[in-house]
Amino acid sequence: MKKHLIPAAVLTLVMLVFFTVIYPMAVWGIAQFSPNWGKGEIIEHEGRHHYANIGHSFIRDDYFWSRPSAVDYNAGGSGGSNKGPSNEEYLASVQARIDTFLLHNPGIDKSQIPVDLITASGSGLDPHISIQAAEVQVARVARERNLPEDTVSELVASQTEKPLLGIFGPARINVLKLNLALDNLSE
């Protein structure tokens, strides 16, 4: 063991330089050519900036709602609820979310509520909702904004992100982009 100790320590130090300085600096250098210099994709809007990939909390009736979040969309951290599927307390909170949704969206039957709107995401920062989750909110948003429902429906359709190359993965809607488009429409 003694014979190996010094060589092992020196080897560790030279490899440290290679793998924690040269390798990340090379990646960093190339990332400077990516959108926003590798600092995360930004959307500028009315003097404020937002991260396209980080969801926002939307709870006002005149915005499309985001999914429930275990960390309230504070991206200084991240986290899911980690509730098990049979947890009674958890199931009661899901029921409460359904009741709240129905209260704010009169005329909607509960069979129209998609599951993503009443369950918390893994990261607590999910920027997306499903297409159904946007459609089921159209009537409410249109009423609150005094817009025709068709106009809002068209907006939802135009904000729909298709599966990758049209064939891989789910279609989805970025809630922040949808609500920004909504604000632009109302002005």
Partner: peptide
């Protein structure tokens, strides 16, 4: 959509 608790829409 399936068991979406703890999962991401994308």
């Amino acid at each position: 959509l399936g068991a979406m608790e703890g999962k991401e829409v994308r």
